[in-house]
Amino acid sequence: MVQFSSINSLSLTDEKTWMWRGFPIAYQSYGETGPAVVLVHGFGASWRHWRKNIPFLGQNCRCYALDLIGFGGSAKPSPKQDIDYTFETWGQQVADFCQEVAGSPAFLVGNSIGGVVVMQAAVSYPQWVLGVAVLNCSLRLLHERKQATLSWYRRVGAAFAQRILANQGIGSLFFQQIAKPRTVRRILLQAYHRSEAVTDELIDILLKPAQDEGAVAVFLAFIAYSQGPLPEDLLPILPCPTIFLWGTEDPWENIELAREWANYPNVEQFIPLEGVGHCPQDEAPELVNPILQEWILRHGS
């Protein structure tokens, strides 16, 4: 069995490239036999956020992790002019990856906004999705329908912040202020319950793509994105087996708001992960990996 100490065997520098719609997309893979599984990161992250999971799952699966267009090592084309950064776009990207790279339907695993992406892919392209596993799904609290349920001062504050950041100059300055090691570390220490998981390597993984041309525009486009699907829209029409894993100490995506999702008939399990924050796959791989492996192999067989 692959031990967690062996994750260093997965090179973080030797990534692969797939051309999608004429744009280079970065990805990594591990394993040559078994069912296909595709890992999808959250906002501002990359395939490297799954560096502790890919070798483990690759023992019994053909495991892939890709960078959504606009993030990580993938191209960052201009919003609106070259591409729309929406869940429909990312859902199509993931489905096309299953077809063109994995070469078969796959199990999809997503963290944060990646959870919405994999659900969108399953709904729009069910022929390429065998099952969906979601880790601390984004509740999309900035969505226009969610904002309508907020208290008036929070609603006004959210709308004001979005309008201010829509200004290119102000938005760029804001991005420059947060794209610094000290700020990223502070944000991660809020998101991660286990502070020892916030390493220099992790900060480098998140910061390096922020220096790419186009990164600021992608960031601002997503901040302004208040439309598209909510998880509650996709869950009732998911055509495949689904499980949720949720770090109980997530300060951004409250587990209590999501527990009712366990009542949907296609949700097989809703598994709380005690003492874990927003990114369980990176913070507690020893908890997440065996759960995902068992679920994938049970359905994949």
Rank of each mutant, 00 (worst) to 15 (best):
Q3C: 11
S9W: 10
L10I: 08
D14Y: 10
E15R: 13
E15M: 07
E15H: 15
T17E: 08
T17S: 09
W18Y: 12
M19N: 11
M19G: 00
W20D: 01
G22W: 04
Y27N: 04
Y30T: 00
Y30C: 15
G31W: 14
T33E: 14
G34M: 14
P35Y: 07
A36H: 11
V37Y: 11
V38K: 03
G42M: 04
G44H: 02
G44V: 05
A45H: 08
A45R: 03
A45Q: 15
S46W: 11
W47K: 05
P55Y: 05
G58T: 00
G58S: 04
Q59L: 11
Q59H: 02
C61H: 15
C61D: 05
C63L: 12
Y64D: 00
Y64R: 04
L68W: 07
G72S: 10
G73I: 08
A75G: 14
A75H: 13
P77M: 01
S78M: 13
D82N: 13
F87T: 06
E88M: 02
W90E: 00
G91D: 05
C98N: 09
V101T: 06
A102N: 10
P105C: 06
A106F: 05
N111K: 04
N111S: 14
S112W: 08
G114D: 01
G115P: 07
V116Q: 01
V118D: 00
Q120I: 07
Q120Y: 10
V123F: 12
P126N: 11
Q127S: 13
Q127F: 05
W128I: 04
V132Y: 03
V132K: 02
V134R: 02
S138K: 09
L139W: 01
R140S: 12
L142Y: 14
A148L: 10
L150A: 13
L150H: 12
S151I: 11
V156I: 15
G157C: 09
G157I: 06
A159V: 13
R163P: 02
L165W: 12
G171N: 07
G171E: 07
S172G: 15
S172F: 07
S172M: 04
S172V: 02
F175G: 00
A179K: 01
K180H: 14
P181Q: 10
T183A: 15
R186K: 15
I187W: 11
A191F: 12
Y192P: 02
S195M: 08
E196W: 12
V198I: 11
L202R: 01
L202C: 08
D204H: 14
D204W: 09
I205S: 06
L206R: 06
L206P: 07
Q211L: 14
D212V: 05
A215F: 13
V216M: 01
L220D: 01
L220A: 01
L220R: 13
Y225T: 02
Q227R: 14
G228W: 08
D233T: 10
L235R: 01
C240T: 13
G247T: 05
E253P: 01
N254P: 05
N254S: 13
E256I: 04
E256C: 07
L257W: 00
A258V: 03
A258R: 02
R259F: 09
N263Y: 08
Y264S: 00
P265M: 00
V267T: 07
V267D: 02
E268T: 10
F270A: 01
I271A: 03
E274R: 01
G275T: 06
G277L: 00
G277I: 00
C279H: 05
P280K: 09
A284G: 01
P290V: 10
L292W: 09
I296F: 10
G300V: 07
S301M: 12
